[in-house]
Design a protein around this nucleic acid. Structure first.
Length: 578
RNA sequence: GCGCACGUAGCUCAGUUGGAUAGAGCAGCAGCCUUCUAAGCUGCGGGUCAGGGGUUCGACUCCCUUCGUGCGCGCCA
C-alpha cells in the first residue's frame, strides 16, 4: 500500500462519521484529498478535508477539523495537528510506516500497489507518422512521451496496448509511387519532378537501395535505351503503381528501426489499408446512417458533427463514392472499441486539434461513452522549434529539407533526447537547441540523475556490500532527527503515489522532475555530516547497514524511474578528460 | 473572422483534480577537492505568474474580457 492510500481511507472514514453526525450524507464517491505538506516540519501529509466538508456542513473548518481528529485514532501517529485555515497535518510514526510499506524491493512494492488500481484496458496510439517520408522531431517528442506514459500506465496496474496507425492508403500512397517513378526516370532522362510529388532527396536514396537489392521487376526496369523508346505516360502509371507498396514498406521499415533505436516499442502497427480492403470504412458510414447521423449534400455524405460541437458537418463519403480520411479514422476507432478497449488515448500532432471534435463526436454517435468507464482522450503534442546555434532550423516538408528523427538520434544521445522531451509538458511549444544540448551535455540534468545512481553503486563497491533489502520501519526510525536522511526517505515513500498520479493525468513530466529531486536529495544526504557509510562501517556497523539500505531504496527508485522513461541507469560513470 | 492551445526569473521550462512562503536547470556572482566519483556541494542576486475584472475561506490554477504568439478552419491526409 502507499502511505497516502492508508491515510485517505482513514480520513474518508472519519469524514463519513462526522458528516452523519452533522446530519448530512457525503457523496458516495467522496474521496478526501491527501496532499504533501509544503515542508516536513508540518508533518508528512496534510488534508484540506475539513475545508471541503465545511461547504457541505456549513460549519467552521477548524471546528470540523477538531471533529475529524476526534474520529481518528490519533495515538497511532507521531503527531496530528490543525494548521492554518483548517488543514490537518499528519506526522506518521515508524510503526505505521513499517505496517504499510512492508516490501523489501521497490518492484514488489509497486506490484502490491497495483492492487489499488482498478486496471483499465487501455489502447494508446502515438507517433503514427505517415509512411511517406522520414519522421520529424515532433514524432520523436511523441515517441518519448507516449512510450514513457504507457510504461507508467503498466507500472500503475493498467493493461496497455501500444499501437501505431499506418496511413498506407489513398492519395498520398499514389503520390509516393509517382515520386519513385519520376525519380527512377530521372536517372535516364531529363524530366522535372512534378510539384505534387514528394520533393525530398530521401526518395532517391530509397530507390537506390531498391535497385541495389535487385527489387525492381523486369517490366519496370529501365536502361538508357528503354527509357528513350518507352511510352512514357503508360510507364509512369505502371511504375507508380508498382513502387507505391514497395516505397511504403521501405519507409515504414526505417521508421520502425528508428523507433527501436529510440527504445520506443509498439505492440502493433495497424494498417489503414486493411480497413478499406475489408469494406469496413464504407461499412461504418452505413452504421452512422442507421443511427441518423449522416446527411446528404451535393451528392456527398456528411457526418453531422455539429451535433457534437464541431464548426460544420464533415464529408465522410465524397460525391464519387470514395471515403474521406475522416471516415477511415472513424472506422479505425470503432475497431478499437470493438476490440474491447475502455480507455482510448491518442497523441496527435499540433495541426490536428481541429480534428478532435469530429472524431470524438463520431465515437459518441456510435454509442461509445454511454457505459461507465469509457473514455476517449486526445493529447496534442505541440510543435518543436529546432534551433542550431540559437538560430531556427527551417523545417519544410515540401522542400524536403527537414530535420529528421534519425538526424536527432545520430546527433544527440538517446538518454538526453528522451529526458529532454519528457521533461516538458506536451501542450507547450518547445525550443530544442541542438548546439546547447551537445555543449551542455556534461551539465545536462539527465547526467545528474544517472550520476547519483552511479554514486550509490560506488558506495556499494567501496563498502564491499551488495545491495540488501530494506526495512521501512527501521529506516523511519534511523532517519528521525536527521534532516537530509528524513527528506530523502519520505520523498522516496512517494514514488508509487507519483506513478498513480501520472497514470491518472498523463503528466509524464512529473517523473523526470521527481527523479531529479531524488538525485538532489540523495546527493545532499551523501555530503551530509555523519552520513559517510565507509567510515560508519567501523564505528557503528548497524547504523551503516541502515544507511546502506536507504541507498538501496534510492537506487531502486532511480533505476525503476529511469527504466520507465527508457533511459539507461549506468552503475559506473567516468568523466571524459577534455 | 471563427475555433483550439499557449503566455510564470535574462533564457528553457516545472508548479500535484483550486491549498500553507511561486520552484528547477542554464546564465551571473562568492566560496569549497589530504573525502564512499568535483558530472559534485554551500551561499547570493533575480518575479506586477501578459493586463484588467469576477467566482470563494483560499486563484499561477476556474469563468469573462483585452493584448500577444502558434496552430486549425479542403469532397487533403
Amino acid at each position: 500500500m502507499t502511505l497516502r492510500t492508508f491515510l485517505r481511507s482513514m480520513v474518508a472514514a472519519a469524514a463519513g462519521q462526522v458528516a452523519r453526525a452533522g446530519g448530512s450524507d457525503l457523496p458516495a464517491d467522496f474521496q478526501p484529498r491527501i496532499d504533501y505538506t509544503p515542508d516536513l516540519k508540518f508533518g508528512h501529509y496534510a488534508t484540506p478535508a475539513a475545508m471541503e466538508l465545511a461547504k457541505v456542513l456549513k460549519q467552521n473548518p477548524r471546528a470540523i477539523a477538531e471533529k475529524l481528529i476526534a474520529a481518528i485514532d490519533v495515538s497511532a501517529f507521531e503527531k496530528v495537528e490543525i494548521a492554518g485555515a483548517g488543514f490537518i497535518n499528519f506526522t506518521l510514526n515508524p510503526a505505521q510506516i513499517a505496517a504499510t510499506v512492508t516490501f523489501d524491493s521497490v518492484g514488489k512494492w509497486l506490484e502490491n500497489c497495483r492492487k489499488e488500481t482498478a486496471g483499465e484496458k487501455v489502447i494508446f496510439e502515438y507517433v503514427s507518422a505517415n509512411p511517406t517520408g522520414p519522421m520529424n522531431i515532433v514524432s520523436a517528442r511523441a515517441a518519448s512521451v507516449g512510450d514513457s506514459i504507457t510504461r507508467v500506465l503498466r507500472a500503475a496496474g493498467h493493461s496497455v496496448h501500444r499501437e501505431y496507425y499506418v496511413n498506407d492508403y489513398g492519395n498520398q500512397v499514389e503520390k509516393l509511387g509517382l515520386s519513385f517513378a519520376y525519380r527512377y526516370l530521372q536517372k535516364f532522362t531529363a524530366i522535372d519532378l512534378p510539384e505534387d510529388c514528394y520533393q525530398g532527396e530521401y526518395i532517391v536514396l530509397y530507390l537506390d537501395r531498391l535497385i541495389a537489392d535487385g527489387k525492381i521487376s523486369t517490366e519496370i526496369t529501365l536502361d538508357a535505351g528503354k527509357a528513350a523508346s518507352l511510352n512514357r505516360d503508360q510507364w509512369i502509371a505502371d511504375a507508380a503503381k508498382y513502387f507505391a507498396p514497395l516505397g511504403i514498406r521501405s519507409i515504414l521499415h526505417d521508421q520502425q528501426t528508428d523507433l527501436k533505436n529510440f527504445r520506443t516499442e509498439f505492440d502493433a502497427f495497424f494498417s489503414e489499408a486493411t480497413l478499406h480492403e475489408q469494406g469496413r470504412v464504407l461499412g461504418i458510414a452505413e452504421e452512422l446512417k442507421r443511427r441518423g447521423k449522416l446527411r446528404s449534400e451535393d451528392g456527398a455524405q456528411l457526418f453531422v458533427s455539429t451535433e457534437y460541437g464541431d464548426d460544420k458537418d464533415r464529408v465522410v463519403v465524397r460525391s464519387d463514392g470514395r471515403p474521406t480520411y475522416l471516415l477511415a479514422d472513424i472506422a479505425y476507432h470503432a475497431d478499437k472499441v470493438a476490440r474491447g478497449f475502455q480507455t482510448i488515448i491518442d497523441i496527435w500532432g499540433p495541426d490536428h486539434h481541429g480534428y478532435i471534435a469530429r472524431l470524438s463526436g463520431a465515437l459518441k454517435a456510435l454509442g461509445f461513452g454511454e457505459h461507465a468507464g469509457e473514455s476517449f482522450k486526445v493529447i496534442i503534442a505541440q510543435q518543436v522549434n529546432l534551433l542550431e546555434n540559437g538560430q531556427p532550423v527551417v523545417m519544410s516538408k515540401r522542400l524536403g529539407k527537414f530535420q529528421t528523427m534519425r538526424d536527432l538520434i545520430e546527433k544527440i544521445p538517446v538518454d538526453v533526447c528522451r529526458y529532454f522531451f519528457v521533461t516538458r509538458g506536451l501542450s507547450t511549444h518547445l525550443d530544442f537547441d541542438l548546439t546547447l544540448a551537445l555543449d551542455q551535455s556534461k551539465k545536462n540534468p539527465v547526467y545528474y540523475v544517472q550520476y547519483a545512481n552511479a554514486r550509490i553503486h560506488s558506495i556499494f563497491r567501496e563498502c564491499g556490500q551488495p545491495p540488501q533489502g530494506f526495512a521501512t520501519g527501521e529506516l523511519a526510525t534511523a532517519v528521525a532527527g536527521h534532516a537530509e536522511r528524513a527528506a530523502l526517505f519520505y520523498w522516496l515513500m512517494r514514488f508509487p503515489e507519483l506513478l498513480q498520479d501520472i497514470a491518472r493525468n498523463y503528466e509524464i513530466q512529473r517523473l523526470p522532475e521527481y527523479l531529479y529531486q531524488t538525485a538532489t536529495l540523495f546527493t545532499s544526504f551523501y555530503h551530509g555530516k555523519g552520513n559517510r557509510i565507509k567510515d560508519l562501517l567501523q564505528e557503528n556497523p548497524s547504523h551503516a547497514q541502515v544507511l546502506l539500505s536507504l541507498c538501496n531504496l534510492t537506487t531502486q527508485v532511480l533505476e525503476t524511474g529511469l527504466e520507465l522513461l527508457g533511459i539507461s541507469a549506468p552503475r559506473e560513470m567516468h568523466r571524459d578528460e577534455d
